[in-house]
Design a protein around this nucleic acid. Structure first.
Length: 435
RNA sequence: GGAGGCGUGGUGUAGUGGCCUAACAUGCGGCCCUGUCACGGCCGAGACCGCGGGUUCGAAUCCCGUCGCCUCCGCCA
């Protein structure tokens, strides 16, 4: 084939270091502006956009948008071009041209297509720099999670997604055929991360998908989502977990701010700096919501409007809001939730709300085997069916607790996306199984 | 699972009983253009208005059904 393809590739963002040199760029054709015997081709690679100047015969060549091309030429400083440099093309090769019409334009600042089209043609829509930025930032968030927890001596674990039973009841499980047995997709790594704590790792985390068979159809639910899970042994109380999450989110946000400045600028987002996150017992939050906004809440909990209102309450002048809700009643928390020391009807658990949406549930867990058996039984469940889980508590288990952060929800709230699907590369919802 | 809303060229919208032989923007095709960067100019193709039925002299527009999508609620991360 051509000489162009074999040449060493230089990326768009590196061009500043090559002024005066001849380089080869490879990427997608973002846009071409024809001016007769002169044309400007904007090439896009994973690092960004760069303008290539085509003259004479090259300018006359038909080139479709989104073709994969190699362009070689001399790098010149050009104050008028984006990035301050452009490439004076001397060679152009189309490596792969699209063989179908593009369903919508992605070379505009904003993609003007409905969510359904955007998701139907995900490979195309994610090429748009603004949409692309969402996933670059999401990657940094996950990276920050791993980085911070590793710095705190957490071990990354990997637990099965095909399981025999659910963690908190069976109604929202996806059943699957496992040879001659009935199995389910894991709705949470809850039992396994506790078992890994008990296996002597003390501090563990996992980044993995979880599956919920809920037939909900909302802008904040997925049937498969990424759970940022952690579990920590030898805690004093759930306060240790909220302290940990505060430091964790501070690090994750700082990493995004430091590493994703161009992406944030593209989305017009400023990452909030996290100082202290207020901790409000649910009952108190309900009272505040009633007093300040005249709204009643469901028993022992907040509804979505209440979550938005309490965030509004703690937000100073419309700034991004983070708030822990604590002391949830026992009857609305799972059987493994540790009762609050001062009131056995409440739990040592918490949720974290971010800009009006629940992004974390966590808490201290029951570590005493007998207490756990009683808790299971008190909910009308059969302790026998939890025997493999219960074994870890019979072999010596430290006080412990943990939490789970919904990655897509965190991403969506941070970036102000209105639908969680926008923060999901290939979402699985009530009806969508493809792409 | 429940409630509400929407469905018009490839895409995004306007049109809410006759002026619709369906408009605008963008994209697409052709021609012109050597400094554009939302490039510009001229020309052209492209939708029987989701689907089925009904009301009416007349339906994109009103009614019923159906399918799809969106939003909200329950529930959750």
């Amino acid at each position: 084939m051509s000489a162009l393809i074999s040449q060493v590739r230089v990326l768009a963002a590196q061009l500043g270091a090559y002024v005066g040199e001849v380089v080869t760029l490879k990427g997608w054709v973002h846009n071409v502006r024809h001016m007769g015997n002169l044309a400007f081709l904007v090439l896009r690679d994973r690092t960004g956009l760069v303008q290539c100047v085509l003259e004479g015969e090259l300018a006359g060549r038909p080139i479709e948008n989104e073709s994969v091309v190699a362009v070689s030429g001399k790098v010149v400083a050009a104050l008028k071009a984006l990035g301050g440099v452009e490439v004076q093309a001397t060679g152009l090769e189309v490596i792969s041209a699209p063989s179908m019409p593009l369903p919508f334009e992605i070379n505009k600042k904003e993609v003007k297509a409905g969510l359904e089209s955007v998701l139907d043609h995900r490979v195309l829509s994610m090429r748009n720099p603004q949409i692309h930025a969402v996933f670059t930032i999401q990657s940094a968030l996950a990276g920050g999670f791993r980085e911070y927890l590793s710095s705190q001596n957490f071990t990354q674990i990997f637990t099965p997604k095909i399981v025999a039973t659910g963690t908190e009841g069976g109604s929202n499980l996806f059943p699957i055929e496992y040879f001659e047995q009935r199995a389910y997709l894991a709705q949470s790594p809850q039992f396994y991360k506790q078992m890994m704590v008990g296996a002597g790792f003390e501090r563990v985390f996992e980044i993995a998908p979880v599956y919920r068979a809920e037939e909900h159809n909302t802008s904040r639910h997925l049937n498969e989502y990424l759970s940022l899970d952690l579990e920590m042994g030898f805690i004093q109380s759930e306060e240790d977990l909220m302290d940990l999450e505060t430091g964790l989110l501070r690090h994750m946000f700082a990493k995004v701010a430091a590493e994703c400045a161009p992406e944030l600028a593209l989305l017009g987002v400023t990452v909030p700096e996290i100082a202290a996150i207020p901790r409000i017992p649910v009952a108190e939050a309900q009272a505040i919501i009633e007093r300040k906004y005249g709204k009643l809440s469901p028993k022992g909990d907040l509804d979505p409007e209440g979550e938005r209102l309490i965030c509004q309450y703690v937000s100073e002048g419309g700034k991004p809001a983070l708030v822990f809700m604590t002391r949830y009643p026992r009857e609305i928390r799972p059987m493994y939730a540790m009762p609050a020391p001062e009131n056995p009807n409440l739990t040592a658990s918490f949720d974290l709300l971010f800009n009006g949406l629940e992004i974390t549930t966590g808490g201290q867990r029951i570590h005493n085997a007998q207490m756990l058996v009683e808790s299971i039984a008190s909910r009308g469940l059969d302790p026998e069916s939890f025997s493999t889980y219960l074994e870890v508590f019979r072999l010596g288990m430290p006080p412990h607790g943990g939490m789970a952060i919904g990655l897509e929800r965190l991403t969506a709230r941070l970036l102000g996306l209105s639908n969680i699907r926008e923060a999901t590369a290939f979402p699985r919802d009530r009806t969508r199984l493809t792409p």
